[in-house]
Design a protein around this nucleic acid. Sequence first.
RNA 1: GCUACCAUCGUCUAGCGGUUUAGGACAUCGCCCUCUCAAGGCGGAGAUCACGGGUUCAAAUCCCGUUGGUAGCACCA
Length: 492
Amino acid sequence: MAIRVRFAPSPTGDLHIGGVRTALFNYLFAKKEKGTFILRIEDTDEARSTEASTGIIINAMKWLKLNWDEGPGNELPEYAPYYQMKRKEQGIYQKYIDILLEKGYAYKCYCTPEEVEKMREQARLAKQPPKYNGHCANLTKQQQEEYEKQGRTAVIRFRMPKEGKIEFDDIVRGHVSFENALLDDFVLMKANGVPTYNFACVIDDHLMQMSHVIRGDDHISNTPRQIHIFKALGWEPPIFAHLSMILGSDGARLSKRHGHTSVLEYRKEGYLQDALINYLALLGWSTEDSQQLFFGNSLIENFSLDRCNSSPATFDPSKLLWMNGEYIRSKSDEEIYNLFIDWIEYTNQQDLIKDWDKDLLKKAISLEHEKVKLLKDIPGLVDFFFKELSFDEQAVSKVLLSETKKDSSKIVLNECLRRLPNQQDFSPEALEKFARDLATELGFSNGKVFHPIRVAISGRTQGPSLFHMMEVMGKDEVLKRIQFTVDKYFNV
RNA sequence: GCUACCAUCGUCUAGCGGUUUAGGACAUCGCCCUCUCAAGGCGGAGAUCACGGGUUCAAAUCCCGUUGGUAGCACCA
């Protein structure tokens, strides 16, 4: 059997972390099984669907490299997604409504939304499940004409069997069974002629020959309805896999109030595409040995649907952050530089670095590479290379001007000013020897020499390895900065 | 309310009846390394496997029930 799966978001907002996870599992399954992955935009909610949202979803999918392999045309190099509203224009859904009506599996219902709501209300009061009561299920031709004369427009409802049950085997959940009696005659097509989700979804899954439907657990109660439609049309339903939900730290389904939920926000924060993917893959899926990091193609190679967990997972930002650091460290200096430049452009911060020498930036980033957890950390880590020297007050008071260190610091910095101009070899090794020799000669601890130099040239106590930093800065700049520091704090 | 699903360290998870004094990862704590910050190394603490009852020589693992959590119950998807 050819493996064919889809991600079918509704374009009503940002692409959500939970949505990405669903897309990812479909993608991984398709790649692992050498199948086909499709993107289908379920835009049948005309009130809430927006083009902006569609654009966001497509861009996010591209950024995440969750590329789909097929589209309505065969346009290359990039496929467009399928759009249900476009398919509706082609009369695809109406065709099957007619068949269902013809065969008696569906009927026209003339009740208004208000009337239906009233029914539900009554059922609730009677402690019954709030269902449509089948008022229009068996109207005669004359009754239908009468309603139409009143100007009522009909919706199409599915005629649900009153007895029996629907059972199916879910890859994640195992055997699942629902009583038909609990289901009501749900709407297939709205009064405006637009198919509902449950209907359009079935028609498309069949027509697009989906072998598996991998989606969130929140859809599991729609599945029996959908299977009824498949069967009414004489079609074999796909194999279902319902993924567990992703929860926020308070145990409720992940939502806005848990902080960042949109993929794009993670991109803005400076998370890496592959780190986010790796983290999300581990939410509800694992290997036998609980492997954490999956570089390159190993996620695809290791993935299998039957190792998906059926219990919900709580999203843990601190683990994602750790993982992002791991991915950043796994990349070359060159790659991180390029990723940083892309990120600057994506976040429109070109002004921030426009006066920065790119060669120096590259070197500075490589010095701080292993410290970076998010791309957005980089400016704060390296900006002192480019900006005029500014001092961290704590650094000054603790290292340069404290009672126990101010004298030695003054001596060290003045010695640097005196000797460094003659220092021919400005390699880290030579500079380290220079500093250690100086310490020995002056009878100071290494720290009493290294620390003031660090503060004098960077303005802070934290930073790259001192001698690498000096090399990258260059002799002239180092001397200039030390002179500036001495003038500011010691020559008063 | 009805229905479904779920239940192992704070979090993600391994576990498929005996190899389990329940393993790994994040977070946390301590130590080491060290020119700072990181990274790295080593180690600690942290789970009576939700609870109760079975089945079995043997159960985190199988069955039943209870409780709790989550989701669904639209002319939304």
